[in-house]
């Protein structure tokens, strides 16, 4: 496995007014790795994503995407990034193809290349046949697949997924989890996946457990299990999040 760091978060802190949302957070995601960001609701996952995507500016600490500082070189940094947000962000009135063409245009991809990339990504997710359908008519799982295809259209080196499987049925969830893990390995893609669903974690994933804005544990699954002397990720997660509550 290549050890190049695609995402580097260093000493990151952020507050909404007086409310501290993140405290001295450090996260590294190497290429070809799925890094699962686990944490209960309100842990700071979405804030971290908002800072990585530069919805908010970083004030304390630094975020680097493939070596580019998100604050200083944000255009280069953002070009390395593909995102699937927690809320659906497709235009419901447009077709799958129109949505993807819009995204390709925003990333400066020409028409010919866009058609080719759209076909590749949709075929990979078994969605090419549905390219002319209006997004409104797709089910939740299919909408998510389109969003994943969209996030990968411009061939980013880091993929951010903010709880992409919430509200999906079991087969759809499983398909997405498998697909993303396969993609990470196949394309040497770095993935940061925010979730609170433990069964989405694979044994060879990296784990970052975040709670109340602080990183409680980070490393590969075995390291986290050793540190917490836990038998499973679920037990480790409970220990790391309960410890503080108690």
């Amino acid at each position: 496995m290549n050890n190049e760091i695609a995402l580097q978060v260093e000493q990151l802190s952020f507050a909404y007014g007086k409310k501290q949302a993140l405290k001295m957070v450090n996260v590294d995601v190497p290429t070809g790795t799925c890094c699962m960001l686990l944490g209960p609701n309100g842990a700071g996952k979405s804030t971290l994503f908002a800072l990585i995507t530069r919805l908010y500016d970083t004030r304390e600490g630094a975020i680097k995407l493939c070596g580019y500082d998100v604050k200083r070189n944000h255009l280069q940094a953002l070009s390395q990034l593909g995102v699937v947000f927690q809320q659906p962000t497709l235009d419901m009135d447009l077709t799958v193809m129109q949505n993807l063409r819009y995204h390709a245009a925003l990333h400066g991809i020409g028409r010919m290349q866009a058609s080719q990339r759209i076909q590749e990504e949709l075929e990979r997710l078994d969605m090419y046949e549905r390219r002319k359908e209006q997004v409104r008519k797709l089910n939740g799982g299919h909408k998510r697949r389109v969003e994943i295809a969209r996030a990968l259209l411009h061939e980013p080196r880091l993929l951010l997924l903010d709880e992409p499987t919430v509200g999906l049925d079991m087969p759809s969830r499983k398909a997405i989890v498998e697909h993303v893990h396969a993609m990470a390995e196949e394309k040497q893609l770095a993935v940061l996946w925010a979730t609170h669903l433990i069964d989405e974690v694979y044994d060879n994933d990296h784990l970052v457990v975040i709670h109340r804005g602080q990183v409680r544990a980070a490393g590969c699954v075995t390291e986290v299990l050793q540190t917490t002397a836990a038998e499973s990720v679920q037990v480790a997660y409970d220990t790391l999040t309960k410890e503080v509550r108690g």
């Binding site: 255009l75 280069q76 947000f85 659906p88 235009d91």
Partner: peptide, 14 residues
């Protein structure tokens, strides 16, 4: 509110 603005805001353009 729906989030689709974010897609615009995270594309690599000023």
């Amino acid at each position: 509110e729906m989030g689709s603005m974010r897609i615009l805001m995270v594309c690599p353009l000023p």
